[in-house]
Simulated assay, not measured.
Amino acid sequence: MVFALTAFFVACSNNDNEPTTGNLTINLDGLEELGTDFVYEGWLIVNGAPVSTGTFTSVTFPQTFSVGFNDLEAATKFVLSIEPKNDTDPAPSKTKILAGDFSGNTATVNSNIVGDFSNSWGKFILATPTDGMNNNERSGVWFLTPGTPPTAGLGLPELEDGWKYEGWAVINGKPVTTGKFTKLSATDEFGGFSGVNALPAPNGPDGFFPGEDFLTNAPDGQTFPTDLRGATIVISVEPSPDDSPAPFALKPLAKKVATDAVDHSPIDLGAGPKASITGSVKR
């Protein structure tokens, strides 16, 4: 009986000393701050189900989180998502930005879950179709390839739910949107700066092409019409929904317009400043 009681107390003592939590360290390169209504949230995939590792807003790394020890040991994958700040849904949103499988105690993560932009290409023209021909023609940008009829000016992968493309003109150092879009040969979601004339006849069931004329309702610090020569044209990949007025970190295509650029002539977009976000997660 003495031996049995001793063994019982030793076993209890050993169980009490076993760790219940462990550390998960996240180290990412290229992530940028979100709008005020959203946060990043990490997830471990354990037996096929997501387990939250916590939320964060700072993009200074490395960052360490305390996670249940058993979940940490059993996890096969790490995923990072973008969530509403006051989220009541316990599951990850559709807006997943990073993912990677664990190999031993490390997961190498990247943004290929959003899309592979390594072979992306683009063209645009300077033109203002919404105020007629030969009026302020260098004050608008349209992502198309000229021809009869014109064709798509962007070669980009189709995005998953939770993401949209957005065009930008960086004018006098400030980014001004041309609108968000998901289809490359369709009218985008914004027309707040364009003139009153209708866009050219649609070339397909989804309308014209992404782009914008900068003619009216200029934002603070801008004057419309403008001259886009010397401006930088950018395509970004944006979370959806998104409350930030600035371009998101992923910018696969960009081009500074030459000072002698000719309107209605195709201009090639080049590689943007950030086509991929990478990092590592250690347990």
Rank of each mutant, 00 (worst) to 15 (best):
L159A: 06
K96A: 09
E166Q: 15
D116W: 11
T148F: 14
V114G: 04
W163P: 05
F102I: 03
K77S: 12
G104M: 09
T151H: 05
T130H: 07
G173T: 05
P157S: 08
N136Q: 10
N112C: 00
G173Q: 06
S139R: 01
K123D: 12
I171Q: 05
K77C: 05
Y165V: 09
S93F: 06
G122M: 03
P92F: 06
T148R: 14
A99K: 10
G173K: 07
K94M: 06
T148C: 08
G155V: 04
A99R: 14
L159G: 06
D87C: 05
P146G: 10
F143C: 00
K164W: 12
N135D: 09
E160K: 15
D87S: 13
G147H: 08
G132T: 04
P146T: 14
G162W: 08
S139G: 09
N105L: 14
K123Q: 14
V141L: 04
D131A: 14
L126Y: 06
D131Q: 12
P92T: 06
E166C: 13
I82L: 02
M133H: 14
T130A: 07
K96V: 13
P84E: 09
W168P: 00
N112S: 08
D131V: 13
Y165H: 10
P129F: 03
P84N: 10
F124G: 03
P149M: 05
V79L: 10
V109D: 07
S111R: 02
T106I: 15
S111P: 02
F124P: 03
D87R: 00
D116S: 12
S103K: 15
G162S: 06
G167S: 08
F143Y: 15
G100K: 08
V109Q: 07
F117W: 09
R138S: 13
K96D: 04
S81P: 07
A99M: 12
V79E: 13
E166P: 04
L80Y: 10
S103H: 14
L98R: 02
N172D: 13
T130C: 04
W163F: 12
A169D: 02
E137Y: 00
S81T: 11
E137M: 04
